[in-house]
């Protein structure tokens, strides 16, 4: 039981360490490529989102690699009914 718990914690710890390393690189280089609005953003903002980047690093890595730049707008029946495109 103790060994299993140690393994679980070790895997969790490795995930967080990779996330922390990724977060440093992402917040320095990648963030502006994923979201242009983050270009030139202050250090306070980057520190504020650091814990989230550590926790959700696989998602952000996939977006960074995928080159998706423009955040998507939420759909609803009015946006769909209007053709969905912005004027």
């Amino acid at each position: 039981m103790i060994t299993f718990a140690k393994w679980k914690l070790a895997i969790f710890g490795i995930y967080l360490v990779i996330g922390a390393v990724f977060a440093v690189v992402f917040l320095a280089i990648g963030i502006a490529r994923v979201d242009p609005a983050a270009k030139g953003s202050p250090i306070g903002f980057r520190l504020l989102i650091f814990p989230g980047v550590v926790a959700l690093w696989p998602y952000l890595l996939s977006r960074w690699i995928g080159g998706e730049h423009a955040p998507r707008t939420e759909r609803n029946s009015h946006r769909d009914g209007s053709g969905g495109a912005d004027q």
Binding site: V34, A37, I49, P51, G52, A55, L56, L60, P71
Partner: peptide, 14 residues
């Protein structure tokens, strides 16, 4: 809490 900033709203999608 860690995803409460508008950055996350935009990048996770609403």
């Amino acid at each position: 809490a860690s995803t409460s900033h508008d950055f996350w709203l935009a990048n996770l999608s609403a």
